[in-house]
Write a protein that binds this DNA or RNA. Structure first.
Lengths: 180, 180
DNA sequence: CACCATTTTGCAACCAGTTGCATAAGGTCC
DNA sequence: GGACCTTATGCAACTGGTTGCAAAATGGTG
C-alpha cells in the first residue's frame, strides 16, 4: 500500500497531471519507489473515487486532455496517518545475491562480468545522488523539510556506497579465478 | 524470473520436498529471496512439467503425501545459464524512505517510534547474520563454494550494517524534536 | 477404532506491478 | 487540410506474489 501514499506526497509537493507525476517518478520519489504511468493513472482514479484527491480544471475530461490533480484534506489526513503506521522493512530481493548462491553450486562462468556491470551501474547512481546532494542541499539550507529529505538522499547514497564496496570486494573473490 | 532458479539452487544443495523447501526458504536462501509455500508448490509443478526437476519416490502421488524432488541435468544447465545472464539491479523499494519524504510534507508525528522499531529489527538481523558467519565460516573453511557463499552473507551483513547506521543517524535528526 | 491434531499438498481468489497497445487532442510541415 | 509527430490518458491481458482455505495422509490419545 505504498504507491497511493507516494502519489499523495508527490501531489502535495506540487499538484500535477498523471504524466507529470510519471516523469517525476523517474527521478526523486521514483528512486525509492518506482512506478509506471499505468500504475499512476490507475491509482489516481482510485484516489479520486476515494475522495482523497480531485481533478482541478473542470474542463470536459476527455482522453487526450490534461487533468491536474490536487490533494484534498482527507488525502492529507490519510498521509499523516500513514507516516505513523507500523510496517516492517521489506525482505531483500536481489537476484544478484541469488546468482552468487547458484554460482557456488554450478560454477561462476560469466559471473564476474555481471558483477563488473553492476559495479558500473551503482557507481553511476552514486555519482548522480552526490550531484543532487551538492545541488539541493548546500549547508545553508537547513529547514526541517530539508533535513528530512536530505536524510532520505543519504539513505540512497549509503546504499549505493554499500553496493560499490561489496561488488569491489566480491570481484576480488570471483574475478581472479575467472580470468584463466 | 528468480524464484525458479532459487528453487533449483536449493534443490541442488539438497533434494527436498515442498515443505522442506519452504522451511529452508525461511532461512538461508530466503534471506535474499523469500517465498511462501504456495509459490513454491506452484513453481515445483511448473519446473517438473518443464522437465527441469523430477519427483523421486514414484509412490502414488496423493495429496497429503510427501513428494521429494531432485534436479535433472536440464535443470542444472538452466541454472548455469542463468548465472551468466544479464539482469539489472532492482530499484530500491523501501516504504520507510517514502514515509520520510511524506513526513517532510505532513509532519513527523509517530515517525521516530517507527525508526526505533526498525533499528531494533535490523540490529537483530545483523546479530543473526554474524552468528551464522561465526558458525559456518571459520577461517579454515575456504573452498571456492565457501568463499562465494560467504560473500553473499557479507552482503547481508553490509546491508544490515548500513541500515542500523542510517537509522541511528536519522533518529538524531528526527527523534529530538519529537520528544517535546 | 473413533477422534483429533499435525503434516503436507494444493486450489482459488486476490493484489501489485508490467507490457503492449489504443485513442484522443494539439501542434507542425508542406 | 491531410499526413504526421508529440503529449496525454487509458484499457486489457499478463506475471509474480499473497492470503485464506480445503483436503488427504499420518500419528497419537482415550
Amino acid at each position: 500500500m505504498s504507491l497511493p501514499h507516494a502519489i499523495l506526497t508527490a501531489l502535495l509537493e506540487k499538484p500535477s497531471s498523471g504524466l507529470e507525476l510519471a516523469r517525476r517518478f523517474d527521478k526523486s520519489i521514483g528512486y525509492f519507489w518506482s512506478a509506471t504511468h499505468q500504475q499512476i493513472y490507475r491509482e489516481l482514479g482510485k484516489l479520486e473515487q476515494a475522495g482523497l484527491i480531485r481533478a482541478l480544471p473542470a474542463a470536459a475530461p476527455a482522453r487526450g486532455q490534461k487533468k491536474e490533480y490536487e490533494v484534498l484534506p482527507a488525502g492529507r489526513a490519510a498521509l499523516t496517518a500513514w507516516v505513523a503506521e507500523a510496517g516492517d522493512p521489506r525482505p531483500v530481493r536481489e537476484p544478484l545475491l541469488l546468482r552468487m548462491r547458484a554460482a557456488a553450486v554450478v560454477g561462476t562462468a560469466g559471473l564476474a562480468e555481471e558483477l563488473r556491470r553492476h559495479l558500473e551501474l551503482h557507481r553511476r547512481q552514486l555519482a548522480e545522488y552526490r550531484a543532487i546532494e551538492e545541488r539541493d542541499f548546500p549547508p545553508e539550507r537547513d529547514s526541517e523539510e530539508d533535513r528530512l529529505r536530505h536524510a532520505v538522499l543519504r539513505g540512497g547514497i549509503g546504499l549505493e556506497t554499500f553496493w560499490t564496496e561489496w561488488l569491489t570486494e566480491t570481484l576480488a573473490v570471483v574475478g581472479e579465478r575467472e580470468e584463466d
